[in-house]
């Protein structure tokens, strides 16, 4: 990790640590802590897709499947088999990684629309399993009473404690992703993004690199899903449908393709926007759509691109000013 990214991550961590205390000062903003939990969960799954889409250039419309696999594995193991929640979480990540490997090897040979279709199909199959394998998943009704995660005998139940847990996970994922990006495999992925053939000629095992990053994105998705299950303590299939896959895609695109940070910004916007638009009542959905459309139209680099541009301009301005002194 370069010093620059290390600085960014640590200042972001400080910001996240202070935020709930500030939000709790006013009863008008206290519940933003709950919104921030979903921002953390969506950032985690978003980081996975960001690596896959933004760096390796491989689209996936099936991320909700990994999210669901993580959530259901956690739920089923803890409720039906009384497994420790932490172990169940690890099991969920393992199962999702295994499935991602099995799915990734054949599908990542596909390109463009075909890859999108294959992942979309995969997402639908998993959704059908959640719906129809009633004995295991509770079917369309889902099931509840999922125990909370606990630390040294203390259940992590309150919004406040879950906030820190989910952001701890999100920051670990973010740091890991930034490290992947700035490593040799990360550079290999970016070269695959531009050209498979050129990368292969440089000695990169293209197929292997794609599968690896797909597995990473699946594992992140499962981690997010497991957090979701333990936070809500209830799972049912609609949370893992194709629309959620599209939401993850939106998070990455709106946040800014080509930067892992984009996923965090995208998750923040997509979760806070509905809260701010509530006053519009029936028109909130319309305004939501228009705002997202405007972001995509006028800032193809997403919010991160917009902010990075603004920050760059600002620092340049400062430097110029100080040069004059």
């Amino acid at each position: 990790m370069t010093t620059n990214t290390a600085l960014k991550v640590s200042s972001f961590t400080v910001f996240i640590m202070i935020l709930p205390w500030v939000l709790n000062l006013s009863s008008a903003t206290a519940y933003y802590v709950d919104v921030m939990i979903f921002v953390a969960i969506h950032s985690i799954i978003g980081c996975g897709l960001s690596l896959l889409l933004g760096y390796a250039g491989q689209i996936s419309l099936g991320q909700a499947a990994f999210y669901g696999i993580g959530a259901y594995t956690s739920g089923i193991l803890t409720v039906r088999m009384d497994v420790n929640p932490w172990f169940a979480m690890a099991a969920g990540i393992f199962v999702a990684s295994a499935i991602a490997t099995a799915i990734g090897i054949p599908t990542l040979r596909l390109r463009g629309h075909y890859l999108a279709m294959a992942t979309l199909g995969f997402g639908m199959i998993v959704f059908i399993v959640f719906n129809e394998y009633i004995a295991l998943t509770g079917g369309p009704s889902g099931f509840g009473n999922i125990p909370p995660l606990s630390l040294m005998g203390h259940p992590i139940e309150s919004s406040f404690s879950f906030y820190y847990l989910s952001w701890l996970a999100a920051i670990i994922v973010l740091t890991a992703s930034l490290n992947i990006v700035n490593s040799r495999p990360g550079r290999a992925l970016r070269s695959i993004h531009d050209s498979d053939k050129a990368s292969a000629s440089l000695g990169i095992n293209v197929a292997m690199a794609k599968v690896k990053i797909f597995v990473v994105s699946g594992a992140f998705g499962a981690l997010a899903g497991s957090l979701y299950a333990h936070y809500l303590t209830f799972v049912n299939p609609p949370a893992f449908d194709v629309f959620f896959s599209l939401k993850v895609l939106m998070i990455v695109v709106i946040g800014g393709i080509g930067s892992v940070w984009g996923a965090v910004f995208g998750a923040a916007l997509l979760n806070f926007l509905p809260e701010w638009l509530v006053f519009l009542h029936d028109f909130d959905v319309l305004a939501y759509g228009i705002i997202l459309l405007l972001v995509v139209m006028f800032s193809p680099q997403g919010i991160y691109g917009l902010l990075a541009g603004a920050a760059g301009y600002f620092f340049k301005f400062i430097r110029k000013e100080s040069d004059h002194d």
């Binding site: 519940y31 709950d34 919104v35 979903f38 209830f234 609609p238 949370a239």
Partner: peptide
């Protein structure tokens, strides 16, 4: 929006 996680956030709100 017929969405369970949205319902949770709004209940907290």
């Amino acid at each position: 929006e017929s969405n369970a996680s949205r319902a949770v956030t709004l209940a907290r709100r």
